[in-house]
Design a protein around this nucleic acid. Sequence first.
DNA 1: ATTGGTACTTGCACATATTGAAACTCGGGC
DNA 2: GCCCGAGTTTCAATATGTGCAAGTACCAAT
Lengths: 266, 266
Amino acid sequence: MLVHASRSTRARSQTVERAALILTCFTSEEPHLGLPALAAKLGLNQSTAYRYVASLQRAGLLSRDDRRGGYRLGLRLIELAGIALNQIEVRKHALDEMDKLRDGVSLLVNLAVLLEGDVLHLAHSAPRALPRMYTALGRRAVAHCTALGKVLLAHRPWDEVRQLIERYGWRPYTEHSIRELGRLQTELQGIRERGYAVDKEERRRDVVCLAAPIRDYSGSVVAALSVSGRKARMTPERQRQLLPRVLEAANRISFRLGFHGNAAYL
Amino acid sequence: MLVHASRSTRARSQTVERAALILTCFTSEEPHLGLPALAAKLGLNQSTAYRYVASLQRAGLLSRDDRRGGYRLGLRLIELAGIALNQIEVRKHALDEMDKLRDGVSLLVNLAVLLEGDVLHLAHSAPRALPRMYTALGRRAVAHCTALGKVLLAHRPWDEVRQLIERYGWRPYTEHSIRELGRLQTELQGIRERGYAVDKEERRRDVVCLAAPIRDYSGSVVAALSVSGRKARMTPERQRQLLPRVLEAANRISFRLGFHGNAAYL
DNA sequence: ATTGGTACTTGCACATATTGAAACTCGGGC
DNA sequence: GCCCGAGTTTCAATATGTGCAAGTACCAAT
């Protein structure tokens, strides 16, 4: 059995870590930061921040915003992300199945994994009708408020889930979002038993999702697949029709990843 | 006239730059590297490389490949790239127009910018018929062998173009790819005069592309738009029909970026 | 089981590259 | 013309990163 979860290794470089922190200061909410803001955010001396930023810029990881001043994330990241994406085994196998599923159900299909307890979107397949999406790719969402996230959390140790909530709080999106440990635990338990998760407007009003887990050769859940649509179109009856199709697609992907077993024991 | 091309600033951090170099060691061709390989590639002591890698890993910029050993680019990059993408003004405005153009012509539509002399794909809009693409997003291509790239190069100073060729060589893709400075110069000149570029199987056999420049408020060419299709479908006649549509779409995007002038003087 | 090889990991003494304070430049708004 | 904030540079002090060399864990071939 593998021991190393996420190596804590005491080998590290302060400089590299602080430079990496600079990158993670940029978020969807604050995609544009000045030197003083960055320095303040990380408690760095402005000189230090400056030198980091200058070097990150040379590497294309950061770039200046000539119009407004300040910095934003650089084009190099887009290139690197492209390479990273193509390395993700599950995504490679999922794309075809996602398109097939989308054609079958005419709904938005999403693929996601867990990153630091949040949902990270790796791909989507949208029916022609839908208005073009802002880049769903790389979008991050609170896990316990989405079907995708709940499926992924359901297959993590409860302790880990609890710690995440403690650390980040509930961060609810709508009035339907879960906000109690007890309810979350029951919900996750149910998801494990049923083999899928439902999101009834917990993420966004008027949007309902169904999600199923994807497993790799070893049986661990490495990703989740979902379909989502407006509430009006996602009647209980429609959901009953949808469910087997989502599960089948997810299972097909798992199969392609080398999972041939029965997941019941997990 | 703007003076600062890419600030040379002598402020820099060796450590940060070397760490960034580690990331750029990973390419589509070598997306998976071990510690010794990385250290060798950059001429670093293995201990040093190790400490960098350990820190990059903590930041999620790198991750281990548990099955094969070695490292690959991390999920964090996908999140960051998503943020970076949404910051790109031209992309925001282009998406709608690209979808409209695609619907009009039923061909693959692409948007790209120049990154270090190469073409970097920022978005695409594919007709339903096309088989799902491997992530075109973030894909990099040799500029002078593609319509997109030639349009972008045509609006850079010739000296810069020449230096790029000198530095990286011709890197041809097919037997039609340009491989002489003289021919390239004539080609770029023609593109500036005509206002569009054509790629006749220079990038891939059997694929023909048409590309047009996109300008921002200041009149500089910041991106390029293209349509591409199989040779058989891109007859000279079809190209004549296509051309005005591509140009119109590109101009519309330029307009939305605040370019209302006449580009003739540039 | 034993061996050898490879990739990864750590400890330590040295000195180099990073650090922070303070001062300077530049440009925009008042 | 003056002020202010963002970005940039300098320089001495030293924390930080460095390379070597030894150590561990794993795999695969004996």
